[in-house]
Amino acid sequence: MGSFKGHVLPGSLFLLVGVWHMWSCLVQYVSNPKSYKVRVWHPVSGFNGKLKHLELYVITGGAFIDMCIELLYSPHLKIFVNGMLNPNHMNDFEHSGMLLMFFIFGVVALLSVKTRYLPLPEGALCLIAAAAFCSEYLLFYFHSTTHKGLEGYYHLLLVFLVGLCIASILAGTLLSDSFPADLCSGAAITLQGLWFYQTAFVLYGFMMPEGCHLKGNDIVCRSAESETRGELLANSQLFGLVLGVLALAVAFYGLAAKSFGHSDLQSLLVSGEQEFD
């Protein structure tokens, strides 16, 4: 069982990174569509280059802070009990392990782009990012906390979104010039962040479905019909978020094309229309 803050904090990190990834890859595409290359992270322009690596700092710092909360604060520094890991906080230790992978990705990426000691190609950084999402997938799929009922259904949909992140990043690794794969990666990360928020509001906030309530550490529904209604509501919520992210991508594309559009962009659109004629 988690908490409202325990879902909002990682959700905020995924949402920030995902939205920035979507915007950046759209700007990169409309600026020079013929030379598009997949990037696992995107620099922040301007400010004399002082904020160039801001995304990597957000990932590294955010993962580190959240990892410290899960590893140190949540178990109140009682990591070991009777010579073994505290059995009452195994889920916190699992979360910290997942966050450690994202922290490692951020550190490795910073070392790669800011120093000469670990020069890695973009494909290698993509694989490390995919490995971090794989650890998240395995965590939620084989969680020591048994998610069941309505809570389990929300986490099942989360596992699906994490899998989508893995697939899109791997596709970008194999197809290094694929704009759709890169955009899909940003959209999947954005959706994951939004779904963390959605889970927090439903399971621990004001959007609890009728007939279900929080009892101790479990979500309890008074009947099978109430639980099924809650699951159908979850499907509708995910569908609405997908539509929202698609609308955001279209809005971003229009704004980016207007502000940064290259002449090659219009020629590509014209040639594409001629192929269908």
Rank of each mutant, 00 (worst) to 15 (best):
I219K: 06
C25H: 06
P33Y: 10
I69L: 13
H155A: 00
C68F: 13
S135D: 10
F105A: 03
I219L: 10
I189N: 13
L150P: 03
A187L: 07
L99K: 03
S271T: 11
G46L: 04
A187C: 14
L156D: 01
G2C: 05
A234W: 00
G244E: 02
G83E: 01
I169H: 04
V107W: 04
E136S: 11
G149Q: 00
N235P: 00
A247R: 03
C68P: 02
S112Y: 00
E94K: 09
A167S: 06
C184A: 15
D182L: 01
G123P: 04
N82V: 00
F196A: 12
L15P: 09
F47C: 12
K148G: 00
V81S: 06
M208N: 04
Y57N: 13
L191M: 15
V44L: 14
L175F: 15
A247N: 02
F142V: 00
L15S: 12
S178T: 03
R39G: 13
P43L: 09
P10F: 03
N32E: 14
N217A: 05
L191I: 11
S45F: 14
Y137R: 04
L56I: 14
F239S: 12
A167V: 07
G254S: 00
L265M: 05
V58Y: 08
V162H: 05
W195T: 12
F140T: 10
F201A: 01
V220H: 08
G244P: 03
L56E: 09
N91D: 10
A247M: 09
L164H: 02
V81A: 07
C165A: 12
A109C: 04
S259G: 03
V44D: 05
V19A: 15
A224T: 03
S271Y: 09
K78D: 11
H95L: 10
L99F: 09
E231V: 04
P121S: 04
T146A: 12
V40F: 08
K78I: 01
V40E: 06
H21P: 10
F133T: 14
L243H: 02
S267T: 11
L248E: 05
M90V: 13
S144W: 01
G211Y: 06
F93M: 10
F80K: 04
P209G: 10
Y137N: 05
V19H: 09
S31P: 05
V27H: 05
E210Y: 14
Y137P: 01
H76L: 15
F206H: 12
E231Y: 06
L16G: 14
F142H: 00
S259P: 02
G172K: 07
E136A: 12
L127G: 02
F239Y: 11
Y197K: 07
T115P: 05
L269Q: 13
S144R: 02
L16S: 15
Y73F: 15
S263G: 09
G163I: 11
L26R: 08
F260K: 10
S176T: 01
L100N: 12
N32P: 07
Y29C: 07
L174G: 06
H155M: 06
V202N: 02
H7N: 12
K5A: 15
I59D: 01
S31R: 14
N91E: 06
L238T: 03
Y197F: 14
K148D: 00
V245T: 05
A132S: 14
W195Q: 09
L138Y: 10
K50W: 10
Y117T: 12
A224Q: 05
A256K: 03
V113M: 14
P43E: 11
Q192F: 11
V40L: 07
I166F: 08
F160K: 00
V107F: 06
